[in-house]
Structures are given as structure tokens and as C-alpha cells.
Design a protein around this nucleic acid. Sequence first.
DNA 1: GCCGCGCTTCGCCCAGCCCCGAAGATTAGG
DNA 2: CCTAATCTTCGGGGCTGGGCGAAGCGCGGC
Lengths: 230, 230
Amino acid sequence: MSSLAAIAALIGDPSRAAMLQALLPGEALTAGELARVAGIGAPAASSHLKALVEAGLLRVHAQGRHRYFALGGEEVAAALETLLCLARPAVSVRPPWPHGEAFRTGRLCWHHLAGRLGVALYARLTEDGWLEPAPGGWATTARGEARFTELGVDLAAARAATRFACDCMDWSERRPHLAGGLGREVTSLLLRRRWLNRIEPRADEALRRRRLECTPEGRRALESEFGLAA
Amino acid sequence: MSSLAAIAALIGDPSRAAMLQALLPGEALTAGELARVAGIGAPAASSHLKALVEAGLLRVHAQGRHRYFALGGEEVAAALETLLCLARPAVSVRPPWPHGEAFRTGRLCWHHLAGRLGVALYARLTEDGWLEPAPGGWATTARGEARFTELGVDLAAARAATRFACDCMDWSERRPHLAGGLGREVTSLLLRRRWLNRIEPRADEALRRRRLECTPEGRRALESEFGLAA
DNA sequence: GCCGCGCTTCGCCCAGCCCCGAAGATTAGG
DNA sequence: CCTAATCTTCGGGGCTGGGCGAAGCGCGGC
């Protein structure tokens, strides 16, 4: 069996194609959400997702009782887009964010930063050489060690946590943000310096999560310290 | 039904995938030859070919009692190559035919040069100031215009194509090579000048893709004209 | 005109796989 | 500990569609 046929057949099923298209923006979705997107039941979705992961088309990130699925890499997205060039324009998007925009900018997840700010900060730290992969998560590079200390992050407290630095899938952005002791300490610093402020939830907001807001000085600081265009 | 799924399902059948791979070099084959490539009977082949033509993946040219089939266009070749990039190192199976190394040196993709020679040439042209980025692909620089003309590349013919110069992902090298009208014309020149020669497929790989070989004078010419250490 | 060849259409068979329902595993929350 | 939620595996049903043989159509050659 040609590998070309094997890969194309995986994409060629309507249910799996719907899932892949829903993941094309790069955000991760849970198995249940993908089942709903494809219009099938949970068992069928589970079977499809297993096959896609085994073929390398998807990556899976288990967290709690959820399993988040994302595209396996840039080549996968490229292949899907190239295939779509052959197809007629058909639009299929994942359902709009049902909880309003308010929580997407910034919020607390456990004790660390989540939302757009969280995933953006995570991207900067991992791509600009503050962190490097380590067993079970991340470790600081020499440069990161110096920069965190300079900023006033309590690395000793961070290392006292059960996990120093690891990924946490972001609820609204569907990309990972920084968790673990380091995530907690960095967020603690951002709040202590008033770069971020908590906003008390309104009465009509069922969700009890606290939103976070970037202050003007925080915007400047995040720009200069992390290279974040907030 | 998603059009992504429809297209991928067409490529996803083993028989159709074998036919498409056999047509990747850009030359046309008859229905009977394609049936033999796929290892199926004439009726089944006819049915497959009809579906591929209706979807625009193939073009057909009737001549006498033969019907010649060829890929529908450059986008089709590009999509197939990109899909092949996802092929995993499934080393569990022995290579049914020498796909591995034999085709990596040089081969035809649609009508342009692929393989090590293709990506090396692409690198030289884009890095040495022959080409510059343009909307939808590449344009010649003033220097490139002069050099191509001096070499004998038919730039007018290249500009008559639907796309002048664009990227095509190389499935064996995992880097882009030059496609579009310019890719075709440059390759045409290399063959015309006998800098590259086609190698007829052996009997046991009948109708598979054609390899390309660099002649001794071609090696010298590619070195002096393009700076290619072949 | 007649046959040979290439290709297509038609009718049928059957394997693959896509889906669901039921039951089990794992986790979060009270 | 108990319940609810999420996801998995397992078993069985239904249907798409890929394959072949037989027959039909069109072209080229004797």
C-alpha cells in the first residue's frame, strides 16, 4: 500500500476531514468538541482520533479528563492547505467562542496566567531562549535564569513546587501556556508589579473566573522585558 | 460533505494513488498503462480515471483509440508532493521499488526539476539574486533577467504559464524547488543542452517515475553557470 | 466488410469501514 | 465515598464503493 494513499485516505473521510479543518487554525480542541464538529458520536470520534494520532497527523495532550488534539505540525497544516487549493471554496469553522470575549484577553488558571496574554508570554519564553525542554516540562536556560532573577521572579519558590515548569492547555486560546511553579511565580510578579490587574466578575457572569487586565505601564513593561506586543 | 474530504478521498484509494504517482513526472499515459500500474483491470481503471478527470485532478487527451491521461495542472503535482512529505519513515516494510535513494538525486515533478538537484538549484537562484519575492511567488531580478536570457531560457514562454515562478515542496528533500513556467523552461533548457539526461526506468520499475542524471559536462556547467557543486 | 484492439458501460458480489449502543476506565467535584 | 462528566474499548449492523466478467462502442488495419 502506497503511503500516499494511506495518508490521503485518512484525510479523505468526511468526519476526519471536518476535524482536521477545525484544527487548521492551530488551536487544540477536545475529543468531544471534535465529535460535535464532525457530527458523530464519541466512540466514532475516538476511533478516528486514534488513527490520526498514530499517523502523526495529530498530536494529543491529555489534561485532566480532557484530551486536547492539535495538528501534528507545520507540514500537516501545509498539506491540508495545499489540498484545499484543489477544492472549491467551502467554509467550515469551529463554533464561535460561546463565553464572550471577556475572558480571552487574560485570566487566571489555577495560579498562573491564561488567555491571550498567557499564550503570548509562553511563546516568547520558549522561542526566545528563556526556557529549554527538560524531562517532564521545561528548565531555564542560563540566559533565562539571569533574566528571571533580574526581574525578581522567585525561582527558589518555583522549584519548590511539585512541577517546576510545564504546559497547560489554554481554555480559550487552545494553545499551551506556562504552568507549574514558574508559571505561578511569574504571574505573581506580574500582579505584584501592577503590570496586570484583576477585574472582579460582574454579577451576570456565570463563570467565577477572574479576568485580568493589562495596565498601561504593564503594556510598556511586557513590551520591553519580554518583547510582547500587547 | 467537505470538499477537502472529497479530494483527499480521491487520492486516498490505493489504485488511484498509484496512477497519480505514475503521472507525477508530467508525462501522459494511456488508460491501459495506468491500469497496469495500478494492478487492476480495464473496467476498474476506467471508472477511476473518469472520477479523477471529473474532479479536475487529471486531464484527458483522446488520440485515435488511445486516451492519454496527465495530471490536471501544477497545483495537482504540488499537492501530491506535499502529501508525500507526510509519509512517515514506515521502515517496517521493505522498499517495493527503489524509491529511497534512486530518485533523490534528480527527477521530474510535473515538468520541472525535483530532487537534490532541484532544491540545490532553487537555493542558488533565490540566494544569489536571480529571483526576488513577488506576490504569488517569485519574479526575476534585473540580474536574473539577463542571466536567464544569456543562458537561453525562454522567459516569454515561462510568463505565458498560469504562474511564472512559485514554490513546490520536494517530497524527498523536504525543501522547496522551483515550479511554475520558469521551472519548466529552466528544466527544458537543462535537458536540451544535455546537462541532464533522462534515465529510462528498468523493466522491474516499468512506468514508475523517470530519474534524471547529471552528465559530466552538465556538472561543469552547473558549477560555472549557477555555482552548484553537484 | 470484417476483425482486432482499446476503452467504456452495465450488473453483480463482497470486503472494508463507518457508525452507534453498551460497558469500562479515569478524573473532577461535593 | 459517591456522583457526574469525559473518553475509551468492544461488538454488531448497515452501507458505500472497489473489483471483475460480459457486452457494447469507436477506431485502425487487412
